[in-house]
Write a protein that binds this DNA or RNA. Structure first.
Lengths: 207, 207
DNA sequence: GCACAATCAAACAGGTCTGTCTGGTTTTAG
DNA sequence: CTAAAACCAGACAGACCTGTTTGATTGTGC
């Protein structure tokens, strides 16, 4: 099946934080999503129970199930919302960068370093979710694919502006460097791995 | 605390597979470890219960607890053994590579591609375990650190042979590229991300 | 043959899990 | 004011969780 993605121009709000954890929540649905995001991301998806989520959200469990058919659907909703929040923040920060496409591609890793440096940094929830059960859950895999595609469209645009004939090469290189920096920073708690990735892409763009 | 690691010369047996899943298991302890490794790695650590493990191992649950004090200790034992198995395979394959240090550093990613191409590939269990609960479990983080250090010692030796004044730079670059390739391959099920990482390190070593 | 260690099945304890349901209360809209 | 929608606390079902215990059965060394 040819998955059609409308990724051309995602309207993103200027967000100030890379996570939606702690955002104002007026409706019960939002409070559930906030609590679920925090608990899932910090303690794991399988390890977090719906009772805990409802309790932390200050809602009844029946309200949680009124909004989300199952825990799996809640997980999907959390990933979707958190992915959107992260991209709003990321592209918002990128929009403040002025310079050549090369400058912007390198600046990606400065922005990532800000993310890694947050004491609340818990890695990429999509990567973590897939890591919990690589074998099953093809839903999570496609959700991750959509999330990453938004970033890849932007990278591809920079590559085209640089005159790359096949922008996909650069996209794949950036994928390896971004994912590698995320995981290295997560495992070691050392935000400076972003600089390593930055130097590698700078070196490659100079060639 | 200054963690002292004895990583200088790990004696590794010539192993044929990158995982110990499916190995001959004579003792009940080994059958438990085999079953636990398979279930943990494919379906997740939190998602796998000890009853399931004992059942798949063909042992009594009491036998499992006679060998491992708790599920957490079993997880640690699984990671330790699986890490050793992977390194035996990895360094065994590396030992078959002849050429300059540059050749060997590049060949790392050919070997990784073999790993990624296995239909049973489930990513790096250390990364997955940390991803399940980034906040807690400092034990897992140090287990991962030890595992990665074995690889880093080898990379450092190549860097020294190449005349690098600070081999740590190359070690950190390889870390980003290796972790990035692992995760990209795991998320997308595309083993070819190893080639992307290989070209990036080749480009850097040429500079 | 005997003692000892390893292993077995099965029950048990005390929680926690997801998901449903009931019935009452609050909020909102017209 | 009233009717509908949203939300609440709490009980419930039935399964699964980790970890322990009991007592029988196997295999091994001497």
């Amino acid at each position: 099946m040819a998955m059609t993605l409308e990724l051309k121009s995602e309207a993103f709000d200027e967000a100030v934080a890379w996570t939606c954890i702690g955002r104002d929540a007026s409706t019960a649905r939002d409070r559930v999503l906030n609590a679920a995001t925090e608990l899932f991301c910090h303690h794991g998806f399988a390890a977090t129970g719906v009772d805990t989520i409802a309790s932390q959200a200050g809602t009844a469990k029946s309200t949680l199930y009124a909004h989300f058919k199952s825990k799996d659907k809640l997980i999907e909703a959390v990933l979707e919302r958190e992915g959107k929040a992260w991209r709003d923040w990321f592209f918002g920060r990128l929009g403040q960068i002025h310079g050549t496409p090369k400058d912007k591609l390198c600046a990606v890793f400065d922005i990532l370093e800000e993310w890694f440096s947050d004491p609340e940094f818990y890695g990429c929830p999509f990567i973590n979710a897939i890591g919990e059960a690589t074998s099953e859950n093809e839903n999570l895999r496609s959700a991750a694919k959509v999330h990453k595609s938004h970033v890849n469209v932007w990278i591809s645009a920079q590559a085209l502006e640089l005159g790359f004939l096949s922008p996909d090469d650069l996209v794949r290189e950036m994928t390896v460097l971004i994912d590698g920096a995320i995981v290295a920073a997560q495992v070691t708690r050392d935000a400076k791995y972003s600089e390593v990735a930055k130097s590698l892409i700078a070196n490659r763009l100079a060639a």
